[in-house]
Design a protein around this nucleic acid. Structure first.
Length: 496
RNA sequence: GCGCCCGUAGCUCAAUGGUAGAGCAGUGGCCUCUUAAGCCAUUGGCUGAAGGUUCGAGUCCUUCCGGGCGUACCA
């Protein structure tokens, strides 16, 4: 970055000179290939069998302790670190001279026999060294002793902008992303095993839909049309249900044009899955089991999330939204008018949304008064129809309710699911009322999607559908409180 | 978007408005079981950028850039 700074310039210049010295001595600092026989973790795990045997390991030099005619270094590979003892009389004078030209950050291959130092640290007694890649830019120097870390590379901005450095020097970061991969892999195989088909639907869409959110807008040059980045893949997946793919899912990158904070990144991953002949009740069972088994894959059912202790081993609770609101406000909000909701919001000293409608007000009450208290996993059910334009009317006959659940854990939303609305006449009416909301200024109302309606008119089976916020799930299961810590390259303003 | 805080060497951090420092890393030297290796010496800065106040600014003021935290938006 700041190439004008002399200190960094000098370090880089010095390393380039060492690089040249190696070349002049006939050493190729960037060879094409090396064949390690073991990973460092293998050697630690199988010390007894390997003691005295010759191994080859390859990795990045993370520390060096050079003495006159012998040195120790630690090298790091993808499984961890291992120490090597490099003695001039064993590797030869030239090779030792070249070794002393290496820096922290360089890659080397070490061939030698496995032994333990007098302090009982498993090490490799080097017989041959191979330079595998010379680095010319310095790494952050992190030291540790007895599990304590010194001068950790901790500046969040630097870590996110230089994730490669973060991964090299902060082992927990790697672990989080290994766990993330395990979780995603589990979600997929869980659905695969149930006979679901994984699909991909358009990211660039002529019309957005399937959620309440502001989209990113772009221009498609060759069509000379406005396109949107998807805010959900729901409507496309339902078209596939209509098309006869009875069990379908997509691990979808979603884009929403909204703020960045510890729980939100403008692009994030959502798993949506739909099952013909299912409903929210069958989907609840599936989701509960899917999340619990995902937690088992990462190794913990009892999680510390911030200062909350969350237990995924117990059955998830189920509670109607209006009951939760009644407990919180003392009022029955089932048939409340907008004015009444405003009064209640004021009574609880809540901010009044700019866009005054039933949905916004109810959401405000939920967010402030109910959601923060939903710490243990809770399925909130029986949502008002007005805020659920894609969900089917409730089978209990109450015309104001739909079959929907949202799963809350640790005060945050993890899943949203419907018994999908499959009545095309009803769906058209719901879109019409969304359109009226939009005309009243609600900028997150669903636009009418005529193509989707026509598809539904061709007949859609009863269906259960779920969306799961994958990043949030990873946050919970890896006990991270910041979404930036579970996304490798989180959104940051670019530096010009 | 709004509010508060922050930005000093490659990394981690100091510096009542009065000459910009330390540790690690780097460089040179000594050192064949070290491990935050050690000992001796030493390089490295336009203090995020631009203006202003002042005899004098890392420090105070304004604007801009970037970040953090909170809040809003975001189900």
């Amino acid at each position: 970055m700041n190439e004008q700074h002399n200190s960094l310039k000098q370090i880089i210049q010095g390393r380039i000179e060492k690089l040249q010295t190696l070349k002049n001595d006939g050493v190729n600092p960037y060879p094409h290939h090396y064949s390690p026989s073991h990973q460092s973790a293998d050697i630690h795990a199988n010390y007894t069998e390997l003691e005295g045997k010759t191994v080859r390991v390859a990795g990045r030099i993370m520390s060096m302790r050079k003495m006159g005619k012998a040195s120790f270094c630690h090298i790091q590979d993808s499984s961890g670190k291992i120490q090597s003892y490099v003695r001039r009389d064993d590797v030869g004078e030239d090779s030792y001279k070249h070794f002393k030209l290496l820096d922290i950050g360089d890659f080397i291959g070490i061939e030698g026999y496995v032994f333990k130092t007098k302090t009982e640290e498993t090490s490799i007694h080097a017989a041959a060294l191979t330079v595998l890649s010379k680095s010319i830019r310095p790494l952050p120097i992190v030291k540790e002793k007895d599990g304590e870390t010194f001068d950790a590379f901790s500046d969040k901005e630097q870590r996110y902008r230089n994730r490669h450095l973060d991964l090299i020097v902060n082992p927990d970061v790697r672990k989080t992303f290994v766990d993330r991969a395990k979780i995603l892999s589990h979600l997929r195989s869980y659905l695969d095993n149930l006979g679901y088909l994984e699909v991909e639907t358009p990211v660039l869409q002529p019309l957005y839909g399937g959620a309440n959110a502001r989209p990113f807008k772009t221009h498609y040059n060759s069509l000379d049309q406005t396109y949107f980045m998807r805010i959900a893949d729901e409507l496309y997946l339902k078209r596939l249900i209509i098309g006869g793919i009875d069990k379908v899912y997509e691990m979808a990158k979603i884009f929403r044009n909204e703020g960045i904070d510890r729980n939100h990144n403008p692009e994030f991953t959502m798993l949506e899955f739909y099952e013909a002949y299912g409903d929210i009740y069958s989907m609840m069972d599936l989701v509960e089991d899917m999340l619990r088994t995902a937690a088992e894959k990462v190794g913990k059912l009892q999680l510390n999330w911030g200062d909350m202790e969350i237990d995924l081993s117990k059955p998830f609770e189920k509670k109607p939204i209006l009951e939760l609101l009644k407990d919180a406000t003392g009022e029955d909000l089932g048939n409340a008018t907008v004015d009444e909701l405003v009064t209640i919001c004021k009574k609880h000293k809540l901010s009044i949304p700019d866009q005054l409608n039933y949905g916004r007000l109810l959401d405000e009450l939920m967010r402030r008064l109910v959601e923060p208290n939903l710490i243990q996993p809770t399925f909130v059910v029986d949502y008002p129809k007005e805020i659920s334009p894609l969900a089917k009317s409730h089978r209990n006959g109450d015309p104001s309710l739909v079959e929907r659940f949202e799963l809350f854990i640790g005060g945050a939303e993890f899943a949203n699911a419907f018994t999908e609305l499959n009545d095309p006449i009803d769906q058209r009416e719901r879109f019409e009322s969304q359109k009226r909301l939009m005309e009243e200024g609600e900028d997150e109302a669903h636009p009418v999607d005529e193509n989707f309606l026509q598809a539904m008119e061709c007949g859609m089976p009863p269906t259960g559908g779920v969306g799961i916020g994958v990043d949030r799930l990873v946050m919970l299961l890896t006990e991270n409180r910041w979404i930036k810590d579970v996304i490798l390259f989180p959104a940051l303003r670019s530096v010009d």
